[in-house]
């Protein structure tokens, strides 16, 4: 140990193998995912300005097939253009999945770090409380909370945030505890750094990468769940354009227009896969060990 600096050293190297490690980079699949995520975000931002009003429908032109002139993805049961609804719905579907993860990331990191840095009792209280939330089947808990709060996007966001906080907190806690055991934390404490300064300057920079990786992969899951809540009637209300609601809308016509329900479902799948692959890519890039556990 040379000097007691207050700059966190880089993470200790993992056991070195026979061959020296090459510079880490993203795989081709992960690069594609970056592009796809970028496209989805772009559609969410500027898409609504590019397509027609998603709520205007011509009932004489109901359930047009995919590839119909003027309606690339056909029309739904009320004659509304599916492409427009898909594009406009991107923003809400993305936000409904993204925002709970953001909440969970902030809250979970805070809780996890607090638990990891506090004494036996503080640690026990926080982690045992989180265990209680772990004891519910996650989706059912989200449904129950969303149901209790009533339908609406904000309530579905709260419900999802509640079920996502405990796993994020666990990731942050594990990482914090690992750091606390390392020598340089001892050094930082010995040098008289305050608890808050240790948390912000030593712990947070090291806890952030695994949490970011974990949360990126959670976005995929969260998008699927958010659309699922809408599908069950617990998210946005009609006639808002949103992917989950579109699936449930289109379900009525599965016999007359079987492809209709598949279109928004495919959108959900693509968005979710893209974020999952991005999470994997980030994990390799940042050299965070371990699989993401959903």
């Amino acid at each position: 140990m040379t000097a007691l600096t207050d700059v966190a050293p880089p993470r200790p190297p993992a056991a070195t193998g026979v061959t020296r490690r090459r510079r880490r980079r993203m795989s081709t699949t992960a690069r594609i995912a970056v592009v796809v995520v970028g496209l989805i975000v772009a559609v969410a931002v500027i898409g609504p300005f590019l397509v027609g009003d998603p709520n205007v429908g011509d009932t004489s032109r109901r359930l047009l097939a995919v590839g119909s002139p003027g309606h690339v993805f056909g029309t739904d049961g009320q004659g509304r253009d599916v492409l427009s609804r898909l594009v406009v719905g991107t923003r809400l579907s993305l936000l409904a999945g993204l925002v709970p993860v953001l909440f969970a990331a902030v809250l979970g990191t805070g809780l996890g770090m607090t638990a990891g840095l506090s004494g036996v009792w503080g640690h026990r209280t926080i982690m045992r409380t989180l265990d209680v939330f772990y004891a519910f089947p996650a989706v059912l808990l989200a449904i129950a909370i969303a149901a209790a709060l009533g339908s609406g996007v904000s309530n579905s966001i709260i419900a999802l945030a509640v079920i996502l906080v405990p796993p994020v907190a666990r990731v942050a806690e594990t990482e914090t505890r690992r750091l606390v055991d390392l020598d340089y934390m001892e050094a930082a404490r010995a040098s008289g750094a305050s608890r808050g300064s240790i948390a912000l300057r030593q712990v947070l920079p090291n806890v952030a990468p695994p949490v970011v990786v974990y949360c990126t992969a959670l976005i995929g899951l969260s998008i699927v769940y958010a659309a699922g809540l809408s599908f069950l009637g617990l998210g946005v209300s009609p006639p808002t354009a949103e992917w989950g609601l579109m699936v449930s809308d289109h379900t009525q016509y599965i016999y007359s227009a079987p492809f209709l329900a598949a279109i928004p479902a495919l959108a959900i799948l693509i968005a979710s896969v893209a974020f999952n692959v991005l999470g994997d890519g980030l994990r390799d890039l940042l050299d965070v060990r371990g699989e993401v556990r959903a």
């Binding site: 995929g220 449930s248 479902a265 799948l269 959903a294």
Partner: peptide, 23 residues
């Protein structure tokens, strides 16, 4: 493995209904 973890179950169920059950 990659796609199945991202699958929205509610719509896969529907597709199965369409093709294997109804169709």
């Amino acid at each position: 493995a990659l796609f199945s973890i991202s699958v929205p179950q509610y719509s896969v169920g529907l597709l199965l209904i369409i093709y294997l059950a109804a169709g």
